[in-house]
Amino acid sequence: MKRLVQGNEAVFLGAIRAGADFFAGYPISPSSEILVLAAEQAAKDPGFRFIQSEDEISAANAIIGASLAGAKSFTATSGPGFTLMQEAIGYAHQVEVPAVFVNVQRVGPATGMPTMPAQQDVMQIKYGTSGDYYPLVFYPNSVEECYRYAITAFNAAEESLSPVILLSDAFVGHLNEVVDVDAIEVEAIPRGRPSLGTGKRFFTGLTHDEEGHPRTADAAVYREWLSRIRTQHEKVAVHYSDFEFKENPSSDTLLISFGIVSRVVAPLASQFALFRPIRIFPMLSHEIHECAQSYDKIVVIEANDGQYAWLVERELKRDIVHVPLLGGRINLDLVKNGLSEKLRREVV
C-alpha cells in the first residue's frame, strides 16, 4: 500500500525485510527513529531482539556478538557515535563478521550541529578505523532507496562477511515520501555461517591464519589475509556497482554528487551532466572514468569540505572543482552560487 514513509523508517523496514532480527543502539539525533522502531518491533515480535546499549561502543560490539550467534544484526547512529564504533568496525573486518551500521550524518566534528544534515563522514567511513580495510558503503537519496539499500546492505554484508555501512543524512533520514515498500522487490540472502555453539572455532581480532590461530608476528600470514579480504570485497562489490548517470552532450561539465545533494542538484540536468554514485565505496573507479571522459570539467558537490572530491581527483588524476555545502544548509541557490563562483560563469 502506498503511504508516507520517513527515510529512517524505510531503513528500518528494509532491515526487517532483509531478515534482521537484532538491533542494539544508543539514542542519537538524527538517527533515533530507527532505535525507537526497533524497540517497538521487539515489543511485538519475540523473535526480534533489542538492546538499548549504554553507549555506541557497546552497541557496535553487541551487533557483532549477535551476528556471531546467528542473527542478522544492525545498529544506527550518527557521526560522533560512529566515531565510537570505529574500533568495533575494524574488529568486524578482522573477524569477518557480517553486520550493518547505519550512519545518519549530521554536521561535525564532535557534537557539532546535531539536527543538521552533512556528508562529513565520507573519510571516516573509508579510513576511520586502524589498519587497511575495504568497506562496502551505500548512500541512498530517497525514501524508496533507503528501503532498497537497507536490504542490499544486509546482502552485501552476508556475501562479503564484513560490516557494511549504510550512509544517510539528517535530510534523507527525515524525508517523508510516498512509497509502497511492499512493491519493492529485493531478494534477501540468508545467513550462511553456522552460529556460535556449533563448532570449535576461535574468532579473534588478532591477525590469524585460516584456522583462526593467532599469528601475530608473521608478515606472510598478514599479507595473505589482507589480499584475500581485498579480493573478496572487490568480488562482492561488483554485484552492487550501482550509480546513476545522466549524460548531457551539450555540456562540457559533469557534476558528481550523492545522497541528499544529488536530489538538490537534479534540476540542473538540462545544463550539466550528472553522476551519482550509490555505492560510495569501494569507489566506482571504472564507471567514474567512463562517465567523466567526455567532459572537460568535473565538479564534485558535497556537504563537506571536499572529502569525496579529493578521492575523485586521485581516481581520475585530473583537476577537480569542488563545491562545498557547509553548516547544514543545502539548497539549489547555494549550489548555483557555488558553481558560478568556481566555474566563473553565471549558473542560473
Binding site: D21, F22, A24, R49, I51, S53, I57, S58, A59, N61, A62, I63, I64, G65, A66, L68, A69, G70, A71, S73, E87, A88, Y91, S195, L196, G197, T198, G199, K200, R201, F202, F203, T204, G205, L206, G212, H213, P214
Partner: peptide, 29 residues
Amino acid sequence: GYFNVDGVYTLHGRTLPVAEAVKLVNPSL
C-alpha cells in the same frame, strides 16, 4: 582459544556487550 568450543576473543574491554548479545540471540547456549 585453548578450549574445544567456539570462542570469541573480543576487543579490549568488550566481552560483556558481545556476550550479552550472544545470550540474547541464543538463550540455550
